[in-house]
Amino acid sequence: MMFPRFLLAALVCCCLAFSGSSVAAESVWSGLVVATNAPQPTPIPAELNKLEGTLKGLFGYNQYQVIGQTRSTLKSGDEDWLASSKYFSLRVDSKSGSRAAYLLNLQLFQEQKLLLETEAKLSKRSPLVIRGPQVGEGQLVLVLLVE
């Protein structure tokens, strides 16, 4: 008597879990970041908190400032957006991907000039960091992560 009830409850829970996850949209944060060394570095932006150690280890700078950003909600998985600063822009074209990863076409522009184009998969498990050109004493860094 108990076993069929337990089985039914488990089945309902599974259905709810799967239906919930399929409806839930995920948000992708895209940022243009300038890394520099400063005597009194400002705190790292909240979006980059999880990557602070990695960024400092990779680039060796102590300050990371966001000069352009956008947060996009992926519903159909077939969206595009733009994160831009005064001179740089990152165009992202999302193609339909699996639940585990989004397939993105990325284009980095310096004003009208295409600097870099890449096609990459972005997942919650694996953020994407791109080293851009040297800017003054610092470095332009592009960051994309699933929130």
Binding site: K50, L51, G53, T54, L58, L116, T118, A120, R125, S126, P127, L128, V129, I130, R131, G132, P133
Partner: peptide, 8 residues
Amino acid sequence: DKVTVLWV
């Protein structure tokens, strides 16, 4: 942390 890095 499994960050994919594109180093240009």
